[in-house]
Nucleic acid binder design. Sequence first.
DNA 1: GACAGAGGTTAGCCATTGCTTACGGTAAGT
DNA 2: ACTTACCGTAAGCAATGGCTAACCTCTGTC
Lengths: 117, 117
Amino acid sequence: MTNSFALTTRAFSALADPTRRAVFERLADGPRAVGELARDLPVSRPAVSQHLKVLREAGLVTDRPDGARRVYQIDPQGLGQIRAWLDRFWDEALEAFKAEVERTEVEIQEDEELTPP
Amino acid sequence: MTNSFALTTRAFSALADPTRRAVFERLADGPRAVGELARDLPVSRPAVSQHLKVLREAGLVTDRPDGARRVYQIDPQGLGQIRAWLDRFWDEALEAFKAEVERTEVEIQEDEELTPP
DNA sequence: GACAGAGGTTAGCCATTGCTTACGGTAAGT
DNA sequence: ACTTACCGTAAGCAATGGCTAACCTCTGTC
């Protein structure tokens, strides 16, 4: 398989494309068929089909046959993937940022002490 | 300026690259200089410099001169951008997903009624 | 069975990207 | 002043990505 790199990479790069995010946002309202999605998007139907393939391989959507059509819907797994990565760095990054702000403020304070009126 | 597309796109595509995520994860531990980051990464220093430029334009890091060096640190704004997008679809997507699961279960239940022993 | 509608796949084109090498610029040490 | 260390930028290249047009498959209908 082409599973040589993380799902996180696939999820992020899938949502990095504006057209793909537009498709995903349409699906957040509820399940849609391919042609239905392509109808109000500025790209062709095959393009939408390719985007859906990327979204599916990223765990962001699932597909299910419905007669001659094929219905796509949101898969929470992909969003969970990103949210997990985000949460892992959310507190840590904010902590590092806040610590740095405080450190800088201390430096400024020290500078003020070194230059009294 | 080249501000023609959304910060959300820039933030997602910035974190889509594995090397760039590695840089960002290093910075989550605290501020680092460029060469310091490049030392334990499998790419050259200019490559890291270019990655940092992308991260900066995405609002994910800030830079500050420190003598001959240049120190980079996390900027919470970028992560907030992604988190905002995520939160906007988190409940909505889960809602749509759950509704679909229930709908499918009802269909199965109806099928079972149509095929009694 | 022929036909039409829906959708996945391929080939090819053009733009973007991630990388290295080479260069230029600035800051500290001597 | 000369040198050394640190860093950004430009040029060039191989690889990837997004798109369209053309093809093929499958389903439902007459």
